[in-house]
């Protein structure tokens, strides 16, 4: 991928994504952390588009920065007295060391191994290919994912529902 457009795009998006991910850890107020999280989701979506994965990029925007960010915001809003600070636990130093080690290990692995790079150009359009793959090659995982979504939705609703309002559901 040598045309300058994608290179510039990659570096810009990489900086945005990693910068905002770092800000999520560094910023004090939890609401600001969520906003930076959304920014990093959008950065990752941009990276997908530079990898010519347009369907997944748009799905990322729709699901991550559209739905999951709202879930996180609702969690923060529904826990008012819990303090909105983004403080760290006492395990701060070992966490830094461990994640640094993980980062170097992954980095070394990715640079050292010779991936069998194929000289295939980017995909023209992926939406129909994904659709076809989902429905004939991965039909079983597709159904399982559907069942899992249903179970997760019901579980979340039942956990959070106030015990006292069974009868009041339809008032």
């Amino acid at each position: 991928m040598e045309d300058t457009g994608t290179v510039v795009a990659f570096w810009a998006l990489a900086i945005i994504t990693i910068g905002s991910a770092f800000m999520v850890a560094a910023v004090r107020n939890l609401i600001h952390a969520v906003v930076f999280l959304v920014l990093s989701f959008l950065g990752v979506a941009g990276l997908y588009i530079t990898l010519s994965a347009d369907f997944v990029g748009v799905v990322q925007i729709l699901i991550y920065s559209g739905a999951i960010a709202i879930l996180v915001i609702f969690a923060i809003v529904l826990t008012p007295q819990a303090g909105r600070d983004n403080a760290e636990t006492s395990m701060r130093l070992p966490a830094v060391v461990l994640s640094g080690l993980v980062a170097t290990m992954l980095g070394y692995a990715s640079i050292d191994t010779n991936w069998s790079i194929s000289d295939r150009p980017g995909f023209e359009e992926t939406a129909s290919a994904i659709g076809v793959a989902l429905l004939d090659k991965y039909i079983l995982p597709f159904e399982i994912a559907a069942a899992l979504m249903l179970v997760a939705m019901l579980g979340a609703i039942i956990i959070v529902r106030d015990e006292g309002t069974e009868g009041a559901a339809e008032d």
Partner: peptide, 17 residues
Amino acid sequence: LDVGVLFFVAIGSINTI
């Protein structure tokens, strides 16, 4: 875009934030 309409819906969901 090959996913034009989906792009419209995805961008629509951002202004919730």
